[in-house]
Structures are given as structure tokens and as C-alpha cells.
Computed example of a mutant assay.
Amino acid sequence: MVRRWVPALVLGGAWWWAVLRMLLEPEHAGLVEGAVAAGGWGLSLLPVHVVAAVRPAGEPEEATGAAGPERPLP
């Protein structure tokens, strides 16, 4: 379990370091700090809360695609 949290804490610490350096010492902040801050912010926009849909027991996996089951046009 510890191996799962260590990378998250290290990356979170690097992001906070970059953001605080840009806020407190903007004249010394460079491209690396900007890239780390922008990358961390961009990752926060990912929909990590999305979970897989639960299928009924009898429905085969091939029946649904990425956009859902195919239906004939009316």
C-alpha cells in the first residue's frame, strides 16, 4: 500500500513546489516550474471519477461499443 502513495506524494509535492515558486518568486521561476504546474493542473481535469457501466447478466460484451449499444435509426 505504501508503494501506491509514495509516487502520488512525490508528484503532489513537486506540483506544490512549482506553484509556490511561481507565486512567491516569479522572477526566478522558469520553464520547468511552468510545465510542472500546467501539467498537474491538466491532470486534475481528467474524469477519474468515471467508473465502468454495469451490464445485465445476460448481455454479451460485444453488444455494446464505446458509445453504447447500436440501435436502428427511426
Rank of each mutant, 00 (worst) to 15 (best):
A57I: 08
A14P: 00
A66W: 15
P26R: 12
A57G: 07
A63I: 09
A52E: 10
P26E: 06
R71N: 00
P7F: 01
V48W: 14
G12R: 06
E70I: 05
L24V: 10
R3M: 14
E33A: 05
V2N: 13
P69A: 15
V36L: 11
V51F: 13
R71K: 14
M22T: 05
L20R: 08
G68P: 02
M22K: 02
R3I: 14
R4P: 00
G58A: 14
W17A: 14
V48S: 06
P69V: 15
L46A: 12
L20D: 03
W17N: 09
L23Y: 10
E62D: 13
G39C: 00
W16K: 02
V50D: 06
A37G: 03
G12E: 09
V54Y: 08
P47I: 02
L31H: 08
V54C: 05
V2Y: 14
G39Y: 04
G13C: 00
G65W: 10
M22C: 08
G30I: 04
P72W: 03
V6G: 01
E61D: 13
L20W: 11
P7S: 01
T64G: 05
G68I: 05
R55L: 12
W17E: 06
H28N: 10
G40T: 02
E59R: 08
L31P: 02
L11H: 01
A52I: 02
L9S: 07
S44N: 07
A57F: 14
E61V: 15
L9H: 04
A35V: 12
G42Y: 09
L20Y: 09
R21H: 07
T64Q: 10
A67Y: 11
L45S: 06
G39D: 01
P47K: 01
